[in-house]
Design a binder for these strands. Sequence first.
RNA 1: GCCGGAGUGGUGUAGCGGUCUGCACGUUGCUCUGAAAAAGCAAAGGUCCCAGUUCGACUCUGGGCUCCGGCA
Length: 308
Amino acid sequence: MLSMILSKKHNKLLVIVGPNASGKSDLAVKLAKKFNGEVLSADSRQVYKGMNIGTGKITKEEMQGIPHHLLDVASPKRRFSVAQFQKKAIETIKKIQKKGKLPILCGGTGFYIQSVVDGIVIPKVKPDWALRKKLEKKSCEQLYQKLKKLDPQRAKTIDKKNKRRLIRAIEIVLKTKKRIPPLKKKVMFDALIIGIKRDKEELKKRIRKRLLKRLKEGMIEEVKSLHKSGVSWKRLEELGLEYRYIAFYLQGKLNYKEMVTQLQKAIENYAKRQMTWFKKDKRILWVTTYKEAEKLVKKFLEEKRARQ
RNA sequence: GCCGGAGUGGUGUAGCGGUCUGCACGUUGCUCUGAAAAAGCAAAGGUCCCAGUUCGACUCUGGGCUCCGGCA
């Protein structure tokens, strides 16, 4: 076993990213065992209770005794958000560091990862669903004009055709009565970001294999019981991928075969979108094997602390 | 073999004698400030073949080929 190199006041953070089905959880556990770490999931769907097979959530056995955080912290009936994630994640990371252990942030939700690694400062305005519903009725053009009056600066850079973003921007200005400040970042951790690289065809095969396996393991039953426990079809569809397509199937909107092929396609597309996000980040060091990752982490931990 | 119907991007379709043929899905690339598995943007890609009519044909006419339905 490796001797402890980390002091109780280090600020190191290991991050593992990669597309769906690339083998992140597995790598995280292995590295956690090797380097005395604890894992934090950075997955916008694994935060929900009862969403296990469909999200590919790690099982107790697979954890092999390594503590995992930020799983099952919210109810699927309500919406969880990046800001909530960011707060919990930062708190947890600090706690792990204080124990002299290595926090390992592992997941596929790029935005969630970014919120922690870059420490983006998110305006402290909670979603106001009544307001959003009201604004939803207006056209993009109307919303854009409204924003332009309220905050010409923000209007310059916003995506004029994205209603959701326009509404959020207006929401912030209305609540704070101030213009939206330019994006601020507050980097708090000394992070090493490792990405798992997979060949396109290989990834598709892995997705397929995993999908069939999970169907056998009762993924459909899981969605059924979520619905029984009060999660509406609409909400399940909104949760995306597995939950969306299986909800379609259970409602008779798709037959079994259609459900499987369309879901496979949707997961592949999602994996592609994830890669679009990650490709931009030049800090990510891409690996294909555990050994490569181990070497990088070892070097990272031996480095003199850059900051602090 | 005969009679009918149809052939338009990868798939399903819409339309028109003369602006680059429209749409949906798919494909590819991209954006991202409390919904991010969300939301949004952009690009590539087509008129079955041959002849005729016409100033001009994806559109009309004839032939061929292929597919579908009915009769044999």
